[in-house]
Design a protein around this nucleic acid. Sequence first.
DNA 1: GGATGGATTGTTAGCGCTAACAACAAGCTC
DNA 2: GAGCTTGTTGTTAGCGCTAACAATCCATCC
Lengths: 344, 344
Amino acid sequence: MLPDGAPRASALSDVAVHAGVSHQTVSRVVNGHPNVAPATRERVQRAITELGYRPNTAARALVTGSTRSFGLVTSHINQYGPAQTLLGLEKAARAAGYSLGVAILDDDSEAAMREAVDRFVAQSVDAVVALSTYGQAVEALRRFEAPVPLIAVQVGRDESRPTVWVAQEVGAELATRHLLELGHRTVHHVTGPPDSLEARGRMVGWRRALEDAGAPVPEPLHGDWWPCSGHAAGRELAARVRAGQDDVTAVFVANDQMALGLLSALADEGLSVPGDVSVVGFDDVPECAYFTPPLTTVRQDFAELGRRGVELVLARLRGEPLESQPVLPQLVVRRSTGPARQTV
Amino acid sequence: MLPDGAPRASALSDVAVHAGVSHQTVSRVVNGHPNVAPATRERVQRAITELGYRPNTAARALVTGSTRSFGLVTSHINQYGPAQTLLGLEKAARAAGYSLGVAILDDDSEAAMREAVDRFVAQSVDAVVALSTYGQAVEALRRFEAPVPLIAVQVGRDESRPTVWVAQEVGAELATRHLLELGHRTVHHVTGPPDSLEARGRMVGWRRALEDAGAPVPEPLHGDWWPCSGHAAGRELAARVRAGQDDVTAVFVANDQMALGLLSALADEGLSVPGDVSVVGFDDVPECAYFTPPLTTVRQDFAELGRRGVELVLARLRGEPLESQPVLPQLVVRRSTGPARQTV
DNA sequence: GGATGGATTGTTAGCGCTAACAACAAGCTC
DNA sequence: GAGCTTGTTGTTAGCGCTAACAATCCATCC
């Protein structure tokens, strides 16, 4: 692989010799400083391409204290939302000339968060972006005093530090109102994990929409984002329907994966969607449209979130206190919602 | 955020002064060199914690030429497999004291791949791991002469460079044989993108299983990993069933997401699974068990793949030419497969 | 008792780069 | 033409660290 007698990569000084100038002049050309004579600049440029020179990031970082890189701290990168956001983040960071390091938390503890940020700081990253963490990690984030800007993405609004977020409440209200408008007396809710700010935001929006409409607010069922917990919630709701509890005609599920589990449970129990029960999810994962039936859901633009995260970081680095507006979610109506069934 | 008058982080020399030794002794303690008197070591240790010293990665990288970091090049990190593998990779890398940078290719071109690797090289990463890339990118990989070890993960076996891979063919054979054993005369196949090595491997295994059993090998349908293409394939197959083509009783779909689309299309067309058609997927994403019906599929252990990737990299860095064994996939039987329907 | 050798510690140089300043030429003003 | 500015280039120092070597101490051996 590595050709053993490989000549070491050429450095600034090699280019300088090759072009017959001082190393500093080369540095100036590389960094696009003004005040270099066009002829000189051109000569240096040629030497650079001829030698295939690439500046050494470590040396640069050592003297400037900046690596032109961000650290991304996250925990659930195997889920659709965070993964999609990572995509947007990386692309925007790259476009701005920054590279991205990732740290995945083993658990959502404060210690794990602190350790991850510490490692990034030792690596002299220019900023740390915390993506979709929760539990104690997000609490830790709040109090953190790091020697670099620390930006939170997608954890819901947070007064204590710069944040990019999707207006979860708005999305939840959209979903809930959609169901109420179809004539459902109330809407049940399957939550995400209690320590997730996203999950909390969705619950708040759901409750507010019900209260605004004067509808009763049933006790929510609790899930953990995964299909299995949605399945359990579905069985529970089906049992209630069979027990004659006739207000169970509509469910707002806090994400699409749990909605999938719920759909599967309802089907197993012989309930039809949307005939017996209407279901709305959240996220709009690409699979949604192919669920049985295709799922009505709330779309979040995750890639946009990533882009805005980088925007916010860059503004921060320039010292501009940019106030970020929330990304607005949209309702996507498919076939899992319909009019309420007639109660007997 | 950043307390402006922040004192600069303490360096080796600060610790040295604090402990009353030379900076070199501190360096020795930090790097765990032998031949430091226990008492001295302890004194230095204390100074380190008191000052909250953390070694500066850039300075270290400058002199050693190693950053103790890997670069990960990938393109489809928003899909379940790659995301899961990233999880395993990051964890294993961290456990070994390495950090991870990511580069996501905008497209699967050679230029994109080359640029990503170049940037990592300029960052002095110790190794580059290419994850699940395809198209020209994977071709490029083959010919690459990088000044760091370059390891491929999950692109199927490749003689030309160190590779960690899942035995795709074996998984495809498992799936196909399972269907044949249920009495299906042949098995249709929906492929992944033609330039994906994984997709090719699965096709090879499928074909081999059919040939070994003396079954006819139908023309495969082509997909692109996404549910939509599976849906299209499902409609096509349903049309054939309705046209009386009675060998369409079993389908092996190259991934679960396409299988989902296919299930949805079959349901739309009034075909029952597994009554009319049996379906097998590939990957075993967590949603699988909640499809309608729950999907029989082939499980790949992505996290294991990540772990082995790191293992291979580390072996490489130590100069041991470790030969990696493929990760073996497993068949997971659920409810989407059953005996062949009786042909009229 | 002086030579030998291992363990421990310190000194020096330099990785590749940028910042700060110095040096010089060329063009201007009065 | 002295004194100024402006544009261009070079020189020097040092970021924080490790490698290589030098220096010291102390036990051991003949």
